[in-house]
């Protein structure tokens, strides 16, 4: 399964990167979301998948899945929520002020 997930990660990163390079601010925001999805899966995959039961000691199993990447990814999910919200609101404010979400039009003046 690790190979399959690795390919999925690749797809997520490809699409995320492609959207980052697009002109619409909203697509850029979605691109960052895909990148964080990919990063979360990457962290889990590198540790190996489906080794043993869920990391709950009340759950009687011979082995448990690695809890550390899970804890890391859990914080990462919450943080990426915060970051995505911030970027989204930034995009929203940018549109409100400049009346456009096209990054080609948002580039500064030449002298900057």
């Amino acid at each position: 399964m690790e190979i399959l997930i690795s390919i999925i990660i690749g797809v997520l990163f490809t699409v995320g990167t492609y959207m980052l390079l697009m002109r619409s601010l909203l697509r850029v925001v979605i691109g960052t979301m895909f990148l964080s999805h990919g990063a979360h899966l990457l962290l889990l995959t590198m540790a190996g998948l489906q080794r043993g039961g869920p990391p709950l000691l009340g759950f009687d199993a011979e082995a448990y899945a690695d809890p550390l990447p899970q804890a890391m990814v859990l914080t990462a999910i919450v943080i990426s929520f915060g970051v995505t919200s911030l970027i989204l609101v930034l995009a929203y404010r940018t549109y409100k002020v400049h009346k456009t979400d096209d990054l080609n039009q948002l580039r500064g003046s030449k002298d900057e």
């Binding site: 990660i9 690749g10 990167t17 492609y18 990457l42 190996g48």
Partner: peptide
């Protein structure tokens, strides 16, 4: 854009595979 995106994706996939393989 397409080229860079695919390169990034491919690189990350290779990295994930290698990291997993090397780790085990």
């Amino acid at each position: 854009n397409m080229g860079i995106s695919i390169a990034v994706g491919a690189f990350v996939t290779i990295m994930a595979l290698s990291a997993f393989a090397m780790g085990s």
